[in-house]
Design a protein around this nucleic acid. Sequence first.
DNA 1: ACGGGCCTGTGATAAATTTTTCACAATTCT
DNA 2: AGAATTGTGAAAAATTTATCACAGGCCCGT
Lengths: 290, 290
Amino acid sequence: MTDKDRTISDRIQKQLDDMTRAERQLALSILENYPASGLGPLAALAKGANVSVPTVARMVQKLGYKGYPDFQTDLRDELGAIAKGPIAKHETWAGAAPSEHILNRFTDAVIDNIRNTLAHIDPAAFDRACALAADRDRHLYIVGGRITHTLAEYMFLHMQVIRPNLTHVQSTSNTWPHYLLNAAEGDVFIIFDVRRYENNTLKLAEMARARGAKIVLFTDQWRSPVHRLADISLTSRIIVPSAWDSLATPMLLVETMISAVQTLNWDDTKGRMQELEDIFDQTKLFRKFT
Amino acid sequence: MTDKDRTISDRIQKQLDDMTRAERQLALSILENYPASGLGPLAALAKGANVSVPTVARMVQKLGYKGYPDFQTDLRDELGAIAKGPIAKHETWAGAAPSEHILNRFTDAVIDNIRNTLAHIDPAAFDRACALAADRDRHLYIVGGRITHTLAEYMFLHMQVIRPNLTHVQSTSNTWPHYLLNAAEGDVFIIFDVRRYENNTLKLAEMARARGAKIVLFTDQWRSPVHRLADISLTSRIIVPSAWDSLATPMLLVETMISAVQTLNWDDTKGRMQELEDIFDQTKLFRKFT
DNA sequence: ACGGGCCTGTGATAAATTTTTCACAATTCT
DNA sequence: AGAATTGTGAAAAATTTATCACAGGCCCGT
């Protein structure tokens, strides 16, 4: 037993590989809300993990404890030890690393970006953008640039399941003018443009605008020049301790929009989602919900 | 009941003055090792406080609980909330929207994912992964699946600037076996695989492994089967109130790794970035940054 | 100092809950 | 098909909790 196995959490994680499905399910549940969930009654823990009572009993014994109460005692001791430690310790995300570690510095920055972004966002505008993206009568164009096309494609992949009638355009390619030939009044362009802003993207936006299309823009705090043409601009803070910017926050917004649009289109999407559920079942990670 | 009474600790402290000798003795004992001591059996708590069993029973009822288990439940809930960190304390992110708005619910979930992911990550393993990714002598393969290839590509785009000698492989394409022909012992595969896990990805990993390559895996909390072949697994929590999973947290890790690798290779990267700038300037792909 | 009122501990017991275990069926994996 | 895993339902065992009555102690005012 090395240095790393001091906490029960570590020990559980280490054994994760050798566990069976139900055990792993249980272990993850314990880790999920650690250590509170393990301090309640055995039956509650079992229920929370969607696992049977004997499974819990069997596992704690596999972990080397005489019984569940024994396991709880260990958990409590650990909890007590933690609380006694350097309390006022500046909060670190990866507790096992010093706060100067890049993991902590970077995460700090991203959390800060998220907080700042959400604080300044206009929920009404966001909702309008979602409504536009959900409208299947409008053709939906999703446009990304050199780096942002990964975000654009990510959105495209999901929207494809949610609704028909959409196109993924890469503004850096030289084929995008072709797409615009088909753009009609009322169509929707979701455009991604963060610094350094791309001329192609701006041109594309201008032409889209000229054809009477609606423009939803994902950009950064310094705002792409496209924002003057956009009906709705969603700006994210993207600075991190790195030579590059972080797309984590824009991605959060993208995912949120996907979720919102899917809800708006739920009636129509339900069928397709059922298929996904079936595939989901095949992963055999979970019990079926009965 | 005001703002200050949110935690049980606060409530107990407030009543401290009105308590009798034995009660105060008990209360201080609870506070002494909070909340661990309150989560054990009643008798143990009594003994630890040098107080009789009925005293404990009487006091928890005075505190307004139906019984000791009731009190414990409250303590556990509080512990669960605390463990989530001050950030997750039901803060509304987009202040302009109600907390039920999807923006707030989704952000809550993502922050929670980040917190949980970072809490369980092994910084040493992360550092080793970065070192592997930074090693120019090893060819670097970046592998993504159907959805995750966007993340893979995102990483690839940045790594391209940082170091030479790398390839982006899409496991869903049927061309990947060709890439493997060139893979040599000691080469590094960064593989992305979240549920639903893809057979192609697993096969690819197996072949890479067979050729003696190192494998770094980005996966979710349920862990892709690839993790058994991986030298280093970086697991993220990815659940959000949506029909899909969130790649925001894996993306955070990716960006952090990019930043770390770039620092490791900084001497060389500096020059390459400058060249890139020059090339972009020449092609006038970008507007100049003001 | 004294007595009354309150608090507290003792020891015991009943009640409630929780834990443990079992055998077997159902399911999943190989 | 056979082996391993997991769930079910139940019952027994163990532990924990809630209470009780009562005695001893402490504080307080007289």
